[in-house]
Design a protein around this nucleic acid. Structure first.
Length: 832
RNA sequence: GCGAGGGUGGCGGAAUUGGUAGACGCACUGGUCUUAGGAACCAGCGCCUUUGGCAUGGGGGUUCGAGUCCCCCCUCUCGCACCA
């Protein structure tokens, strides 16, 4: 290329991106209203915590969402695509203390900065719907929902053992404890007895479990994780009389069929019955020491592998109500107080834990379920047998099939009034009290005369104090601020104290997707009309780390809001895409590892379009994305090549013209075909599984064809009409991924329209069809030759051609032909 | 231990679901143009002992034909983890 020819217009992404971002913002291009004839589509990405700056994970998440939003708009949908800020939380408090500022100030500054960054990415949000959860205009409605839940009995206060993180100085929900450590700071979590507020998520356990079946648009992995988290078990709850006392010990078992094999009883160290058993117990101190030790150990080793079974005899016995056996009661380190009843009937023959325990302490092993064609004796067993079988030594149930016996034994227990069928869930109620400042205040009041009183709805919001009255810092917890907690009782008007805990930040994110449908509504948490128009979210996109926490809570809230009359849906998110992490040098990008790439640097160096393109091209969205700086340059080169091509072929593209099938030369045909094949591939890639990486590959192929056919070396170049068709389609196909770039090129070619007004292209099957095929000739299944044949060739002539093929003949080598297999449009296999 | 998902060139990743393995991109090699090239363009690029042979973690099987289906094993990632 000569120096003169290089004086073309350069791809000045900076100017282009700024121009279009300004235009989209000032025209509110992506503002939507429910008042439209078009079908609705709600696409949502998990909103960010305003930590300061966006990171590559955000770029990836929001690029994926933006492609979906823009694609659906091209397909004629009325697309709701909102963005907001999950803006309560501990980092704001820590940062505020460090910088001697107010958490609100820090948070809103971050929001302003990150909003600018998101706009620099050219994301097509309806910014009029932006919300920040730390704004009283948001959390006032959350407080109202809280009060309505309280009214309905879905909120209660209790003192119980909770997870305490000393480093974060607050209580955590069970879902926020990861392998015994805090989800946020990785500090070991300790058990504390504290009072707190709880949401009765267990009331919805059955529905949360059953409705998982409706979520066929969710990754199976997430559904399974939720199912396991809810952890439903069915079985028998049954009372065992404690010998020589009036006490009963209640147990839960999923194996009632093994009840005649019970040889001892294990209870948790925290079991309330233990106090009674220790009364006048000669070994009182020994047992106390033991339980104290294992409680501590349990806490410290929660994150470690299973520890060895250990226990101590209490010296007491209880009576098996089925056979009258007198069995010893042990305290055992593997029994959890939090699950079932905290007491386990031990059947060493049929439970591996009990088996190990029995072996260690020399307790009887009594097999009672004998699998077909086996013999079991307690002395010879090497491990517990968990297979079904026929009952032995089981009184009147002997000889019964174990599966059938389960129900018969439950029925028997019910008749004798010693037990009943029971369902146990692993899921426990959601503790939402946090002993922190930067959260939504819990709208309750404690009155010495009237007890706990809800704040009347008309007094909402209960706002966070913004003053510096605590002497210490701006974010001292509310219990240190008399000006906040000193109040009057809503009922008796007497002196009373406000609740000083704030709500878990996961409460805010459990319903924000619904608030987006009417973010400025001032009469209620939600405008029912808007909510029912837009919800459910058609496509939700975010990291898999929220598979349980946020997604479970949001499902719960959706059902609660439905039962409070605000929503008419059962499930919030029809389709869920869990995107992979962004990896560099083998591990997730993180400040502590020092392997972060700042998106702002990339935007400055290559532009937003290149940044978006690479994050979409490097891997399919659900997989982890390995960062590769050179790959970014490749994407940048690709855009530059297109840019230059459009500049140098501008006249031809603008001239356009009608495509007349019978006047196409071979280059025309090839390009025309490739264009339609590409439309088909890109559309299918997006529709089927959002595999933008292969969609982009397809467009690259189209451009490669376009550019090589148009180059000087070909005798026959494609004409203006097919080049115009190729370029126009290429720009629309690529527009969801690189919107500024495509909008700019489009406007330089077609001054009168904007690309946003275009329709998604349709492919023409006839145009996409190949008229010549390459047929593979195999001999004994090995590729020996290839043939160029007309697409409409019949099997017989194909077979004949194959048998005359020189290469094929060489390998047939005169041997007898056994069979010839012809696969249409693919291959001929000659079996000799 | 239980559950889920992976293992394909030097790298990221394709492969119409049983029919040309390695699309597209990166890296690399050679060339053209240049004062220069970290620009652009052209060509090559799985491995080997290259008329051919071997290749999709390893081993077996089904089939005319297997990355894809079946069995066994190895390995990696993620989730749950004494749940009675």
């Amino acid at each position: 290329m000569s120096v003169n020819e290089q004086q073309e217009i350069l791809y000045d992404f900076k100017t282009i991106e700024q121009k279009w971002q300004d235009q989209w913002l000032s025209n509110a291009t992506y503002r939507v209203s429910s008042d439209s004839d078009k079908e609705k589509y709600y696409v949502l990405e998990m909103f960010p915590y305003p930590s300061g700056r966006i990171h590559m994970g955000h770029v990836r998440n929001y690029s994926i969402g933006d492609v979906v939003a823009r694609y659906k708009r091209f397909r004629g949908f009325n697309v709701l695509h909102p963005m907001g800020w999950d803006s309560f939380g501990l980092p704001a408090e820590n940062a505020a203390i460090k910088n001697n500022t107010h958490p609100a100030r820090w948070t809103y500054d971050n929001i302003d900065y990150m909003r600018t960054q998101l706009r620099q990415l050219g994301l097509s949000y309806d910014w009029d719907r932006e919300i920040a959860t730390c704004n009283p205009k948001y959390y006032t409605w959350e407080q109202q929902i809280f009060l309505e839940m309280y009214e309905k009995g879905l909120v209660y206060q209790k003192t119980t053992t909770v997870n305490w993180c000393e480093s974060c100085h607050t209580v955590l929900a069970n879902e926020q404890v990861i392998e015994g450590t805090c989800w946020r700071c990785d500090e070991l979590v300790e058990a504390r007895n504290m009072s707190g507020w709880f949401f009765k998520i267990t009331d919805y356990a059955e529905e949360l479990l059953a409705d998982l079946d409706k979520l066929d648009g969710w990754p199976a992995k997430v559904v399974t994780m939720q199912r396991n988290w809810i952890g439903k078990s069915t079985g028998l709850q049954c009372d065992f009389q404690v010998d020589g006392t009036n006490e009963k010990l209640s147990i839960f078992t999923t194996r009632p069929d093994t009840i005649f094999g019970v040889t001892f009883m294990s209870i948790a160290a925290e079991h309330p019955l233990l106090e009674t058993l220790l009364k006048d117990n000669p070994r009182k101190q020994e047992i106390r020491d033991f339980t104290a030790r294992i409680i501590t150990e349990k806490q410290q080793q929660a994150h470690l592998d299973v520890t060895e079974k250990e226990g101590i005899a209490t010296g007491h016995y209880c009576i098996n109500p089925f056979n009258g056996d007198k069995i010893p009661i042990f305290v055992a380190n593997f029994v959890l107080m939090a699950y079932g009843t905290g007491a386990v009937m031990a059947v060493p023959a049929h439970d591996q834990r009990d088996f190990e325990f029995a072996q260690k302490y020399g307790l009887a092993i009594q097999p009672v379920v004998i699998p077909n064609e086996t013999e079991l004796t307690g002395d010879t067993m090497e491990e517990a047998s968990t297979l079904p079988g026929i009952l032995a030594d089981s009184g009147t149930f002997t000889g019964t099939d174990s599966e059938a016996a389960k129900q018969q034994i439950i029925d028997f227990a019910k008749n004798q009034e010693i037990g009943d069928a029971h369902i146990t869930y692993r899921l426990r109620d959601w503790g939402i009290s946090r002993q922190r400042y930067w959260g939504a205040p819990i709208p309750m009041v404690q009155c010495d005369t009237c007890g706990v009183q809800p704040v009347p709805v008309e007094q909402l919001p209960v706002t966070l104090p913004e003053d510096r009255d605590s002497q210490q810092n701006d974010c001292a917890p509310l219990h240190q601020r008399p000006a906040f907690y000193e109040t009057s009782c809503p009922k008796c008007k007497g002196k009373a104290k406000r609740e000083t805990d704030t709500m878990d930040t996961f409460v805010e994110s459990s319903w924000y997707f619904a608030r987006y449908t009417s973010p400025r509504f001032t009469d209620a948490p939600l405008n029912k009309k808007e909510a029912s128009h837009w919800l459910p979210v058609d496509q939700y996109i975010g990291g898999v780390e929220h598979a349980i926490l946020h997604l479970l809570y949001s499902r719960f809230f959706t059902k609660v809001l439905r039962d409070l009359g605000y929503l008419d849906i059962d499930e919030p998110f029809t389709n869920l895409l869990t995107q992979g992490m962004v990896i560099k040098d083998g591990s997730k990008m993180s400040k502590s590892k020092g392997n972060v790439v700042d998106p702002s640097d990339l935007i400055t160096e290559y532009g937003a379009d290149t940044t978006r393109l690479f994050s979409l091209f490097a891997a399919p969205p659900e997989k982890d994305l390995e960062w590769n700086a050179k790959g970014v340059e490749g994407c940048y080169r690709f855009l530059n090549r297109i840019f230059r091509f459009v500049q140098s072929h501008r006249e031809k593209i603008i001239a356009g013209g009608e495509i007349k099938n019978d006047e196409l030369n071979s280059a025309d045909r090839e390009l025309h075909r490739k264009t339609h094949q590409t439309i088909k591939r890109v559309t299918n890639n997006i529709e089927q599984n959002f595999h933008f990486n292969t969609a982009i590959s397809a467009v690259m192929e189209l451009f490669n064809t376009l550019s090589s056919l148009s180059s000087d070396k070909k005798k026959e170049k494609p004409g203006s009409p097919v080049i115009c068709e190729a370029v126009n389609n290429l720009l629309v196909l690529l527009c969801p991924m690189v919107p500024h770039f495509c909008a700019e090129l489009w406007s330089t070619l077609h001054h009168e329209t904007t690309i946003d007004d275009e329709q998604w292209p349709k492919w023409d099957e006839d145009a996409a069809r190949e008229d010549e095929l390459t047929i593979v000739i195999q001999v004994r299944g090995k590729v020996r030759s290839r043939l160029q044949v007309p697409a409409d060739i019949d099997d017989a002539s194909l077979e004949a051609m194959a048998l005359q093929d020189e290469n094929a003949l060489k390998f047939i080598d005169g041997k007898a032909i056994k069979k010839i297999i012809v696969v249409k449009k693919k291959l001929v296999n000659i079996v000799v």
